[in-house]
Write a protein that binds this DNA or RNA. Structure first.
Lengths: 201, 201
DNA sequence: GTCTATACACAGATAGAC
DNA sequence: GTCTATCTGTGTATAGAC
């Protein structure tokens, strides 16, 4: 039966997402992706000019859902410290799922670390910057001094927690990251007074 | 001229180190490594039973030098807070070198994330555990409560800093990690009193 | 005009035979 | 140390079907 062009493209990206995320970028062939998507290679190359092109689209498609999930994990209630502890606690549970394999962006960067212009690198960079912006807004709203530094440090904790959990397959690294995040944002780091004490532990 | 067997093996591992670390594990072929080492593939397969075997040896060879460098960066003077700030400052400079491409162990884990038994995974895990043990000794010596949690959080900061610097190619993520490390180990985390105040910022 | 199906070019991969 | 077996990779070409 005839296909809708946009649907076909989405199916290819969906197939790529499953295979790339689980097995890695170099480890998965265009053939395997076309097969899983139920299209021929001819169709594949009709929609994407190369495998690298697909890699860029794969990561772009993960950007927004990933950040949405992060926002959901952190929630909107309580101090930044509360939100980050909650975030890392959710990360700890999510990482125990059978399909969890760390951060697709970081793994893409790891595979193409020496290719500065590659879509994997540029797309990952944009995604991480968007994550950091989300944290920066949160930290700034709470009135922290040196909000940029704190936001960067929180990004470091997130990526580091994901990496350590991936290597050891042990969720307690996420919990420890939550502990560090709380110590970072809950102790005398405020530029303004907070007489209601909402940031005191 | 005839070669010494152990020397040949070392040359192969040295060639693998240069190529694997700069380009990644899947991206480099056995041919390229044998070429760079100046041996034939026959010789290569005489010393290693497979590429995966070589990958394991490549990472094993990086274990000790990496940890020695970490110890050198941190130094032996001052509080844990001082050492970690110094460590991240050294990481910031080192990451600006032209050949720097993040952590080989983390990148190996990223490439083989779905292959639990692979030498890349098991070797990386052992290495990271050794790093953590070094930190744990340091933190324990200073008398911190919950030393295990702090050591894990410091590992999270190290791996996270390396990842973020790799993605953005911007050393200020390492500096921010140092800031977070100091807040983690210098504020009321001690189990015992420290009347000399050496941990007060 | 987008898809399927198949075949093909050509380079490169791992591994091993001679 | 060379040479080759066998497979797999990306990307293209040639068919025709809905």
């Amino acid at each position: 039966m005839p296909r809708d062009g946009l649907l076909t493209r989405k199916q290819i990206v969906a197939a790529a997402d499953e295979l790339f995320y689980s097995q890695g970028l170099h480890a998965v062939s265009v053939d395997a992706i076309a097969d899983k998507a139920g299209v021929t290679k001819k169709t594949f190359y009709n929609h994407f000019k190369s495998k690298d092109d697909l890699i860029g689209s794969y990561l772009e498609a993960r950007d927004r859902p990933t950040i949405d999930r992060f926002k959901e994990w952190a929630g909107n209630e309580g101090s930044v410290a509360d939100r980050m502890v909650r975030f890392f606690s959710k990360l700890a549970s999510a990482s125990q799922g059978p399909r969890w394999n760390g951060c697709g962006f970081m793994r893409a960067t790891a595979e193409f670390a020496n290719m500065q212009g590659h879509p994997a690198i540029t797309t990952a960079r944009v995604h991480k910057a968007r994550c950091e912006q989300w944290l920066l807004n949160m930290v700034t709203e709470e009135g922290h001094a040196d909000a940029e530094t704190i936001a960067r440090a929180l990004m470091v904790l997130i990526d580091g927690a994901v990496s350590q959990v991936l290597i050891h397959r042990d969720a307690k690294y996420a919990t420890s990251a939550g502990f560090a995040a709380r110590s970072l944002v809950s102790k005398g780091q405020l530029a303004s007074d907070t007489p209601d004490g909402k940031n005191q532990s």
